[in-house]
């Protein structure tokens, strides 16, 4: 009985478990306990790791990698907007939403990988600064939550069956959430630059 429920609702139970884990982390002040210990790692990233040394020494290399980071974010944002605005029935109405969802996903995956790799380099160059920024940590939290939401929740749901068989309000909620996630990642990324 329990085994059948666990296998039948594995994804939903995983969401519940992650939510409860996050609540526990906050209630038990685990975040506050971990945070001070990370400062030495961020200082090492900035001053001793080879990416930190290259980032802080060669401005042209840093600028080039940052340009690649922004371009990958632009591609990522483009795939998200194309898919989610189609799911909301605003653009590309003549293209089946299933086609866009499957067609843009590979591009989204590569853009996300590129954004993360170039983002690590950019963060290493200013690691001793971003460690103290709340917006940096919020961006990281939303980036992780957003990536998991896209890869393990949104895409499996939207590729599981034709979209006419999914409740339209479920599709709308998923599309709006996805757009707000990537808006927050982009806005907080720019906020880091302004802080």
């Amino acid at each position: 009985m329990l085994g059948s429920i666990l296998s039948q609702y594995a994804r939903s139970l995983a969401v519940l478990a992650i939510f409860l884990l996050m609540v526990l982390v906050e209630v038990l002040d685990i975040r506050d306990a971990i945070y001070p210990g990370l400062e030495s790692f961020f200082n090492w990233m900035n001053q001793s790791s080879w990416i930190g040394v290259i980032g802080t020494t060669y401005g042209s290399v840093y600028a080039t990698v940052e340009a690649l980071h922004l371009l990958s974010m632009a591609v990522l944002g483009g795939t998200v907007l194309a898919t989610d605005l189609r799911l909301l029935g605003i653009i590309f109405k003549d293209v089946p939403s299933e086609t866009l969802v499957t067609g843009t996903h590979k591009c989204f995956g590569w853009a996300l990988l590129m954004a993360i790799l170039t983002g690590i380099f950019c963060a290493a160059g200013v690691a001793n600064k971003v460690y103290f920024m709340e917006v940096f940590w919020i961006k990281m939290l939303v980036l992780i939550a957003g990536s998991c939401f896209m890869l393990f929740i949104k895409q499996p749901l939207l590729t599981s069956r034709p979209h006419t068989q999914i409740n339209p309000w479920t599709i709308r909620l998923v599309a709006v959430t996805s757009m707000l996630i990537w808006f927050t990642v982009a806005a907080n990324g720019r906020w880091i630059g302004f802080s």
Binding site: V15, I153, V174
Partner: peptide, 22 residues
């Protein structure tokens, strides 16, 4: 089904959190 429950619950949690933040 499982995928719909997971989508609805995670979307509600994330959307609620982000709206609260903004």
């Amino acid at each position: 089904d499982d995928k719909t429950i997971a989508a609805l619950s995670s979307a509600a949690i994330i959307l609620g959190g982000l709206l609260y933040y903004w």
